[in-house]
């Protein structure tokens, strides 16, 4: 309700404090005030950033994946796929980079699952739960940080792409829109991985399970090659694969071409995934915390 219901600091004079406490108690399930909530999310975000700082290897996926994948696909498949697209490896850059953008969102989102899982296996969560904070702030901070990681990965991807001859044939605004679309879809996927992270017993199991989901989605899509040469049943799959939709939308936004249908499909997918898995993940989180 109002922000007045959280009591500001333990060092407040005793009389006013007990009044606050009474109000808090009377309010029962009253939520933590918005400002306090933002402060808690900020504290957890800082924690996650500090964890990364202490363990820089955890950024390897974000830094290396875009570089390795772009180089690999452009130089290995660029020639042949580029030719079949009616150009050379240069035109493949414009094909594959938007596709990789879709893929990165998914791969980075995966890490959130192991992070949530880690928190539960160590005693951290217990301490947070005995504190007067909204539990969801732990999850929200995780998502904020993963979004940041996602944007770094996409920036590096675009950097490598430009070095290899990526051309923006539309506008910077359209490019930003494609980044935003990828981030939006990636965030919706985070809920799936949070759900996995809360369900699986070990971090390794989370990663194994995530790979099982990721691989067919990634390769059975229009990310790396146009589906027109694929068998009919696979084309049917790729048509509805949200990664194809996202890749096609990003392609349209960067190189020009139809966007509306693919972007609409992507947003529909993102919305549907969030609507279904976010409540499940939050419920699971409530129960297990």
């Amino acid at each position: 309700m109002s922000t007045a219901t959280f009591s500001p600091s333990p060092s407040t004079a005793p009389p006013s404090h007990s009044k606050h406490a009474e109000k808090d108690g009377a309010a029962g399930r009253n939520r933590i005030g918005l400002r306090a909530n933002l402060r808690h999310i900020g504290a957890f975000t800082r924690r996650n950033v500090m964890q990364i700082k202490q363990d820089p290897e955890s950024m390897l996926d974000v830094v290396l994946m875009p570089v390795v994948f772009t180089l690999l696909f452009v130089f290995v498949f660029g020639g042949s796929v580029g030719q079949s697209l009616g150009g050379d490896s240069d035109s493949y850059v414009n094909y594959v980079v938007p596709g990789l953008m879709a893929m990165l969102g998914m791969n980075v989102a995966m890490a959130v699952g192991s992070g949530v899982n880690d928190d539960f296996r160590t005693g951290s969560m217990d301490r947070f739960r005995t504190m007067p904070i909204a539990r969801s702030s732990v999850l929200i901070a995780k998502i904020v940080v993963e979004l940041g990681r996602m944007l770094i990965a996409i920036t590096i991807l675009l950097g490598v792409g430009f070095a290899l001859g990526l051309e923006i044939k539309t506008s910077v605004l359209a490019l930003l829109a494609s980044v935003g679309l990828s981030a939006a879809f990636g965030s919706s996927l985070m809920w799936i991985f949070i759900l996995l992270g809360l369900t699986m017993r070990t971090t390794q199991a989370v990663q194994g399970m995530a790979m099982m989901v990721l691989m067919p989605l990634q390769f059975g899509s229009s990310i790396f090659a146009p589906p027109s040469s694929m068998p009919g049943w696979l084309q049917a799959f790729t048509d509805y694969n949200p990664l194809s939709n996202l890749a096609d939308a990003a392609r349209g936004l960067i190189s020009g071409g139809p966007v509306a249908h693919a972007a609409g499909m992507t947003l529909a997918w993102a919305g549907a995934i969030t609507l279904i898995t976010a409540p499940l993940a939050v419920a699971k989180f409530r129960r297990s915390t």
Binding site: F6, S9, P10, R39, A43, M131
Partner: peptide, 15 residues
């Protein structure tokens, strides 16, 4: 997290 960061975080979480 460093010792300081751990305690600072708890302080912030306690408003």
């Amino acid at each position: 997290l460093s010792g300081w960061e751990n305690l600072y975080m708890i302080g912030r979480l306690l408003d």
